[in-house]
Design a protein around this nucleic acid. Structure first.
Lengths: 274, 274
DNA sequence: CGATCAGTTGAAGGGTCTCAACGCGAGTGG
DNA sequence: CCACTCGCGTTGAGACCCTTCAACTGATCG
């Protein structure tokens, strides 16, 4: 029991800083930046209302908000990466998702007023923070942003659905493949390379996200690499055969019926097994 | 491959009816009903704008929208129950969630304009439908409802997070316990009994939702009943020991270290095994 | 009354969990 | 500078839970 208290204390110790709160010089400039970040086309002459949007900077390991905290704002990732997670009573950490540039954080808290999950920066990151009081009337003051927020929330809901699809796949290698493909797609949307991935999260985080043991993640990386789909060097992953990986990721439970779904029937693995 | 096409055709055959579309007599009355449904306190004299909200009735097995369909409205469950699901290329059906009274359907479609998942009525059900064109300006025309929709969406996002927690539990019995507890809570919020549950979904749906085989769900029901937590009669479930079931549901992976977390170390099961 | 589907139960096999041990790098203080 | 610690990542071996295939019962339906 004592180590659980320890864990909580650790988190509390990390939290108080909450990053540095920087108010940008001109509120209108920040609004324009946020609009651009969320995908709006904004020309220089467009008139926008003034909103009290702060932006925070966080270092790796700092939490944006912790579990159970009273919600006071929703956030938009400007740079970096976050993990969203919940901690069970026995200390087991369940990762619910990862957020990168352009995604929304803290929306879950609207239902009850408190955050049902925590968000931690995985690297040097920054966010825009919109106070909840402002968000309530956003539809009237800046409908354009309101719509973009809806899109982002919708996307978050969609990704949670994809999470279910990952955890539903029986084979651990398939889960990992789907995870990497999702990551690749999202990195592509951010403007980064969809083939060369730099993983910001630990194997343990991935394991929790996929619902398997972290040793299994390690072994699955090995399997996908032996397979030829990708090349792995610690947290650097290069996807070598994107179409092949996609095809492989389609395997659901009770996958192989006619043997053609699986491009190659685990060549190396069979050799090792026999 | 042919049976996949068959599946798609089946769904198409069911869909065209899309329930009966009934425009309520007075648009304002419907708005008030919807506001009440979503949890607002509305007195009789309150002035509400007129919105073109339809309400549809669906019979068991009918789909509200199918996967990939272009989104034209978001829906609010007025009565009945729905399952939200996606179908993989090989025909495997992944259930992402169940929606009951007061919950929102179709919000996921905002990100891309098409529904990433399908929604099917599990029993005689009805929904209010708000056209997307109206929803865009909802913040300006009826901020009160806009806020309530945000709450509902936030709740949906939360429940998807809970889905992850269910699938993360290693033991199938724990997954089922968590599922039943979630269902119990939601039924309680709807005004129904939280102890006597009438399951609207099949074992197969539950299995897909929990990420296990449907035989395993069957066995888990048996185990929880032998255990004494509940009584099961087909789709009628009575929770006999709610605190006990809650305690049991807290077991995460690598549960038992000191033996006290688990109230009773599977008495019957051990007997059967030895 | 045959057909189909939902639900249950049994038996066998396999994939993953768990417990180990090991190498590695970063941070730390002697 | 170099042990020392700690966390991350990897790999191996055994146990166990779940999947899969199978058979059986009831219920619904044409």
């Amino acid at each position: 029991m004592s180590h659980i208290v320890q864990l909580v204390q650790d988190r509390a110790r990390v939290q108080p800083a909450m990053g540095t709160a920087d108010m940008a010089c001109d509120p209108r400039t920040v609004v324009v930046q946020l609009l651009r970040l969320m995908g709006a086309q904004v020309d220089r002459l467009q008139v926008v209302p003034s909103l009290p949007i702060a932006w925070h900077r966080l270092r790796a390991g700092e939490t944006l908000h912790h579990e159970g905290a009273v919600a006071d704002a929703i956030h938009f990732v400007r740079a970096g990466a976050f993990k969203i997670y919940r901690t069970a009573e026995d200390g087991y950490e369940q990762v619910l998702g990862f957020a990168v540039r352009g995604e929304v954080l803290g929306f879950e808290a609207l239902a009850n007023g408190t955050h049902p999950s925590a968000a931690m920066a995985l690297e040097e990151s920054s966010v825009y923070s919109l106070p909840l009081t402002e968000f309530q009337s956003l539809g009237q003051r800046l409908p354009e942003l309101d719509l973009l927020v809806h899109r982002a929330v919708s996307g978050a809901l969609m990704r949670r659905g994809e999470l279910a699809e990952m955890m539903a796949a029986v084979a651990a290698e398939v889960r990992l493949a789907r995870f990497l493909l999702q990551l690749s797609r999202r990195m592509g949307e951010c403007g980064e390379s969809p083939r060369r991935l730099h993983l910001r999260m630990s194997r343990r985080d991935i394991a929790s996200y996929l619902g398997v043991a972290h040793e299994t993640v390690s072994r699955s990386f090995g399997a996908l690499a032996r397979w030829g789909w990708l090349r792995v060097d610690n947290r650097e992953v290069e996807i070598l055969d994107l179409p092949g990986l996609k095809q492989f990721s389609l395997n659901t439970r009770r996958a192989v019926d006619e043997g053609i779904h699986l491009p190659a029937p685990r060549p190396e693995l069979r050799l090792c097994a026999t």
